[in-house]
Design a protein around this nucleic acid. Structure first.
Length: 263
DNA sequence: ATGGTTGGACCCCAA
């Protein structure tokens, strides 16, 4: 089974890119973030025609919004409102065999890395504390879980273009990195991208729009992640980041993470 | 130190 996570930054203007991604990845399941559309305006017909008849969404107008697209039926679908009831940032569904898929869009956190001055950063930290509680609920349960999404944190030194220059930049501050590691450690989550790429190697999934040549400056960050619970470790077959998607005609600033699992 | 771009809404906000 091939699972993809992709921050699409508006699904309605990026159907052509989604098509390319579906074809190149041969995805069975695509977790989307920032669909930026309310449920009633979701482009169901266009997405179905890409080979995903099963569509599970938690949308809102203008901001946020998550969706799971699937080639086969999923079960026990739940949409959550972590902390703030107006933010649609988490949807989950189960495979027929009971494996859980959780799709997240973590808050970006604003510009200033201080929770007292910047309430968006405070919200991001509280969101992660809530995620840690959510993950801890699965402790000792042996639930098989996949979590995918735009987590808006780049945890390792080589997950950003300059560790030193980004230490005070939201997405790579020590407090965020510590929270993400605390989340990872709850269940011993496996980072599928880093499972195949050593920590010494640069690896990014996002490049800002605010560079005239994203490839030349290459100031990327790895904000998008697919994690597995340890009881799925033996199923993890491969993973890659589809960097070429950043060069599509009308690209998102994020590119897809693609993970293959034998389940 | 600053500003650079994009998307969706509305005459600005979030990323």
């Amino acid at each position: 089974m091939i699972i993809v996570t992709y921050n699409i930054n508006s699904i309605r203007i990026r159907i052509a890119e989604l098509k390319q991604i579906a074809e190149k990845s041969n995805a069975d399941i695509i977790c989307l973030q920032e669909i930026k559309v309310e449920d009633s305006l979701f482009p169901f017909d266009e997405v179905k025609s890409l080979g995903f008849p099963y569509i599970y969404i938690s949308g809102q107008k203008s901001y946020n919004g998550v969706a799971i697209l699937s080639r086969f039926q999923l079960y026990d679908v739940q949409a959550y409102e972590i902390i703030d009831s107006s933010h649609k940032r988490h949807i989950s569904a189960k495979l027929e065999n009971g494996v859980e898929i959780h799709n997240f869009y973590a808050p970006a956190g604003g510009d200033i890395a201080d929770p007292i001055i910047n309430e968006k950063f405070d919200f991001k930290l509280r969101f992660y504390e809530a995620l840690i509680d959510w993950s801890n609920e699965a402790k000792n349960s042996n639930r098989k879980m996949i979590m995918a999404g735009d987590m808006n944190i780049a945890p390792l030194e080589n997950d950003v273009w300059s560790h030193k220059q980004l230490l005070k930049v939201v997405s790579h501050t020590p407090i965020e990195v510590e929270l993400m590691e605390k989340l990872r450690a709850t269940l011993g989550w496996i980072d599928s991208s880093r499972h195949f790429v050593p920590a010494s190697e640069k690896l990014y999934s996002w490049w800002s729009y605010r560079n005239q040549d994203w490839k030349k400056s290459d100031r990327g960050r790895r904000l998008d992640h697919i994690w597995l619970t340890p009881n799925l470790a033996s199923c993890l077959k491969s993973s890659y980041i589809m960097k070429e998607a950043r060069d599509f005609a009308n690209p998102s600033d994020h590119v897809p993470v693609v993970t293959e699992i034998n389940i």
